[in-house]
Deep mutational scan, measured.
Amino acid sequence: RKWEEIAERLREEFNINPEEAREAVEKAGGNEEEARRIVKKRL
């Protein structure tokens, strides 16, 4: 699934746990840019 690939990239890029990465992607509706913004806000 594409969402899992996005979550994996976010996890590696921001050094967050898989659960946090998945939550961000879900919140963003699968949009990678939006997920990235969500993760950055949390850091």
Rank of each mutant, 00 (worst) to 15 (best):
R1G: 11
R1D: 12
K2F: 12
K2D: 11
K2R: 14
K2T: 12
K2V: 14
K2G: 13
K2M: 14
K2A: 13
W3E: 05
W3M: 07
W3R: 07
W3S: 04
W3Q: 05
W3K: 06
W3G: 04
E4Q: 14
E4K: 11
E4M: 09
E4T: 09
E5Y: 07
E5Q: 11
E5H: 06
E5R: 07
E5K: 08
E5T: 06
E5C: 10
I6M: 11
I6V: 08
I6Q: 03
A7I: 14
A7C: 15
A7W: 08
A7P: 01
A7M: 13
A7D: 02
A7H: 03
A7Y: 07
E8V: 11
E8I: 13
E8W: 10
E8T: 10
R9Y: 04
R9T: 06
R9D: 05
R9G: 05
R9E: 04
R9L: 08
L10K: 00
L10T: 01
L10G: 00
R11E: 07
R11D: 02
R11T: 09
R11A: 11
R11M: 12
E12M: 15
E12R: 15
E12N: 14
E12D: 11
E12T: 15
E12Q: 15
E13D: 07
E13R: 04
E13V: 05
E13S: 04
E13A: 07
F14I: 01
F14P: 00
F14T: 02
N15I: 04
N15S: 12
N15A: 10
N15D: 10
N15F: 08
N15P: 07
I16D: 00
I16P: 01
I16Q: 02
I16F: 02
I16K: 01
I16N: 01
I16H: 01
N17K: 13
N17L: 12
P18V: 13
E19K: 09
E19R: 08
E20Q: 08
E20A: 08
E20K: 04
A21M: 02
A21H: 01
A21L: 03
A21D: 00
A21N: 00
R22V: 07
R22G: 04
R22E: 07
E23G: 07
E23Q: 12
E23T: 10
E23I: 11
E23W: 15
A24V: 10
V25A: 04
V25Q: 01
V25D: 00
V25W: 03
V25M: 05
E26H: 12
E26T: 11
E26Q: 13
K27A: 14
K27N: 10
K27M: 15
K27W: 14
A28I: 00
A28Y: 01
A28M: 03
A28P: 00
G29H: 13
G29D: 13
G29Q: 13
G29T: 06
G29V: 09
G30V: 02
G30Q: 02
G30I: 02
G30M: 03
N31S: 09
N31Q: 07
N31H: 08
N31L: 07
N31P: 00
E32H: 11
E32N: 03
E32G: 03
E32W: 14
E32F: 12
E32K: 03
E33M: 11
E33K: 08
E33F: 13
E33G: 08
E33Q: 12
E33D: 12
E33Y: 14
E34D: 08
E34H: 08
E34S: 06
E34Q: 09
A35C: 03
A35F: 01
A35L: 01
A35Y: 01
A35K: 00
R36S: 03
R36E: 03
R36A: 04
R36M: 06
R36Y: 04
R37A: 12
R37T: 09
R37C: 09
R37Q: 10
I38L: 14
V39Q: 02
V39N: 01
V39T: 06
V39H: 02
K40F: 09
K40N: 09
K40L: 15
K40S: 10
K40R: 15
K40W: 14
K41I: 10
K41G: 08
K41R: 15
K41H: 13
K41E: 15
K41Y: 06
K41C: 13
K41D: 14
R42F: 15
R42A: 15
R42M: 15
R42S: 15
R42C: 04
R42N: 15
R42P: 03
R42V: 13
R42Y: 15
L43D: 04
L43N: 05
L43S: 05
L43W: 08
